Amino acid sequence: MAAGGDHGSPDSYRSPLASRYASPEMCFVFSDRYKFRTWRQLWLWLAEAEQTLGLPITDEQIQEMKSNLENIDFKMAAEEEKRLRHDVMAHVHTFGHCCPKAAGIIHLGATSCYVGDNTDLIILRNALDLLLPKLARVISRLADFAKERASLPTLGFTHFQPAQLTTVGKRCCLWIQDLCMDLQNLKRVRDDLRFRGVKGTTGTQASFLQLFEGDDHKVEQLDKMVTEKAGFKRAFIITGQTYTRKVDIEVLSVLASLGASVHKICTDIRLLANLKEMEEPFEKQQIGSSAMPYKRNPMRSERCCSLARHLMTLVMDPLQTASVQWFERTLDDSANRRICLAEAFLTADTILNTLQNISEGLVVYPKVIERRIRQELPFMATENIIMAMVKAGGSRQDCHEKIRVLSQQAASVVKQEGGDNDLIERIQVDAYFSPIHSQLDHLLDPSSFTGRASQQVQRFLEEEVYPLLKPYESVMKVKAELCL
Rank of each mutant, 00 (worst) to 15 (best):
M380V: 03
N357I: 08
D144K: 15
K170G: 03
E279G: 06
P56A: 11
K284G: 15
L183T: 14
L252W: 04
E401M: 09
I249M: 08
F28Y: 13
G96L: 09
S23A: 11
F379A: 03
Q455E: 14
I287A: 09
M380A: 02
S261Y: 02
C266A: 10
F145N: 07
S9R: 13
E328S: 03
A150Y: 15
I369E: 04
G197E: 02
L311R: 01
A348E: 07
R194V: 05
D441K: 12
L69Q: 09
D182R: 01
I386V: 14
F30A: 04
I403Q: 05
A230F: 04
Y21G: 10
K402M: 02
G203F: 04
K170M: 07
T227Y: 12
L272P: 04
L193K: 03
T167Y: 00
L186W: 07
Y21N: 04
L131A: 15
D422I: 09
A49M: 03
C340T: 10
A322V: 15
E283D: 15
L124K: 13
M316G: 10
S12T: 11
D73M: 06
W45S: 11
H159L: 02
S359C: 10
N274P: 05
M181H: 11
A150S: 12
A49Y: 00
Q416H: 11
K75I: 11
Q177F: 10
D422G: 08
I427H: 06
D441L: 13
G8Q: 15
L271A: 06
Q51W: 04
M76Q: 15
G418A: 06
C98R: 12
M76K: 14
I436S: 05
D223K: 01
V29S: 07
N421G: 06
K82Y: 09
F74V: 15
R329N: 02
L132G: 14
T202N: 09
H93E: 12
L258I: 07
G419Q: 12
K367T: 02
D59C: 14
C98E: 12
V247T: 12
G419E: 14
V262E: 04
L406E: 05
L124Q: 09
S261T: 11
T242I: 09
I139M: 10
W326Y: 11
H310W: 07
T450L: 06
L193W: 00
I106C: 07
A47T: 04
L135M: 15
T38D: 00
I339L: 13
C266K: 04
R329G: 03
R300L: 15
G393S: 06
D59M: 09
H263I: 06
H310L: 09
M89H: 00
P467Y: 07
I339C: 13
T350N: 15
F212D: 04
D422Q: 07
W45Q: 13
P318S: 09
T244Y: 01
E417I: 07
R234F: 08
G169D: 02
I427K: 04
V198L: 14
I424H: 13
R300D: 05
H263C: 14
T382Q: 08
A480D: 14
S289W: 00
M312H: 05
Y34L: 06
G259S: 10
E376R: 03
N297M: 05
L468H: 07
C173A: 13
L331R: 01
K246A: 02
A453M: 02
L193V: 10
A322Q: 12
I237W: 07
M380H: 03
D11G: 09
E360I: 06
P366L: 04
G288D: 01
W43F: 08
A410M: 07
C172P: 05
H442V: 15
L444M: 13
D445H: 13
F36R: 08
D445M: 14
M278N: 03
P318W: 06
A256I: 00
F160R: 04
V413A: 10
L444H: 05
C305Q: 04
K477Q: 14
